[in-house]
């Protein structure tokens, strides 16, 4: 890949461009009718949050994400082919087609799971923090969620426990201004979210997501503190460029707002910064973008060519291998109807 080694911003730019392009391909997969359903939540416009925070995570760190988590998983090092295949519900996907976009996970990369319940994955990082502390894993567990989860009680229960027990935990709110179609000021009176975290005894800060290096710097401080037992909270202020999910045409907001919002483009900002500071040239970045586009194009081909899971795999993984399994309904019916005359 066309990257200048040891150039932090180049690396972050590449991560963000990969996320942007991947998400665009997710949209294409849907249009081609190859996605499993339409519940596809794109993080276009939010790439700095994933790239900035994941850049300061260590290999042993763990995390959970919300339903808009493709970018975070990619930034963490996921294989985009296996991700796309999962989004397509194929057997080659990370979860063999059982999880999809909103329930993707990979234990090898410390991904404890994306979640389709708003706030549902947050308390797991408290437990991971307990494990880390008790088993001396030297890991921080990071919960990524949207501003919608800021109004869920489970977040505050989790913050309270993390602070009470001095756990290596970081809560990251990706504030894209909307919980589905409800703008944040229609959901809460006080949008200074860091105040809430501080009230529970956590470190807390808000960062503008336009400049990924600022996100990274804020995350680095919070991660270092968390690793030493002082949990933290970070709110990254971004704008969700498109609708809630693929079918959403955003009737609840006007075009002028969207056009203004899309000016806060962290990918473009980083690109311009690289050129202005002389770290990269425009042709070099174009080449990087083309390489990434080719990589992401291949994810669609891989997905289309992959097989759907075998029907009988549906009974697998409800319980551990070797444990009593669920009995298929058809088997039960056949047994009931196969009675002998008595």
């Amino acid at each position: 890949m066309n990257l200048k080694p040891n150039t932090n911003l180049s690396s972050l730019y590449r991560t963000m461009r990969r996320i942007r392009t991947f998400e665009e391909r997710v949209g294409e997969l849907f249009i081609r009718g190859q996605s499993a359903g339409s519940m596809l939540h794109l993080s276009i416009g939010e790439e700095s949050s994933a790239a900035g925070v994941c850049a300061v995570m260590k290999p042993q760190d763990t995390f959970t994400t919300h339903h808009r988590g493709h970018g975070i998983f990619l930034a963490r090092g996921a294989d985009p082919k296996r991700m796309m295949a999962e989004i397509g519900g194929k057997e080659t996907g990370y979860c063999h087609g059982k999880g999809g976009s909103m329930h993707i996970a990979d234990m090898a990369l410390g991904h404890l799971g994306a979640n389709a319940i708003v706030g549902g994955g947050i308390p797991a990082v408290v437990g991971a923090g307990l494990s880390s502390k008790r088993l001396k894993q030297d890991s921080v567990s990071v919960a990524f969620f949207g501003d919608g989860a800021m109004q869920q009680g489970i977040l505050y229960e989790s913050m309270n426990m993390a602070a009470l027990w001095d756990l290596p935990v970081l809560f990251v709110c990706i504030n894209n201004q909307y919980g589905m179609g409800t703008r944040i000021d229609q959901a809460t009176r006080n949008t200074a979210f860091d105040q809430r975290a501080k009230a529970f005894g956590l470190n807390g800060t808000v960062v503008n997501g336009l400049d990924v290096e600022e996100v990274q710097a804020a995350a680095r401080w919070l991660m270092d503190e968390a690793r030493n037992g002082k949990p933290g909270f970070l709110s990254v202020e971004v704008y969700r460029f498109f609708g809630h999910a693929r079918m959403d045409k955003s009737p609840y907001r006007d075009e002028a707002e969207e056009l203004e919002g899309r000016k806060k483009d962290p990918v473009l900002f980083a690109r311009n910064k690289l050129i202005e500071t002389g770290l990269e040239t425009e042709p070099a970045l174009d080449e990087t973008d083309r390489t990434i586009a080719a990589e992401m194009d291949a994810t669609i081909d891989f997905t289309v060519e992959s097989k759907a899971p075998q029907l009988n795999t549906m009974f697998r993984d409800v319980y551990a291998v070797g444990e009593p399994e669920p009995e298929p309904v058809r088997t039960r019916i056949d047994r009931v109807l196969a009675r002998e005359d008595v």
């Binding site: 437990g127 989790s158 426990m161």
Partner: peptide
């Protein structure tokens, strides 16, 4: 209660 069970889930996934 939600965070007690939720934290137990996370702990169970990470070695406890």
């Amino acid at each position: 209660e939600p965070a007690i069970i939720g934290a137990a889930v996370g702990a169970a996934m990470t070695g406890l």
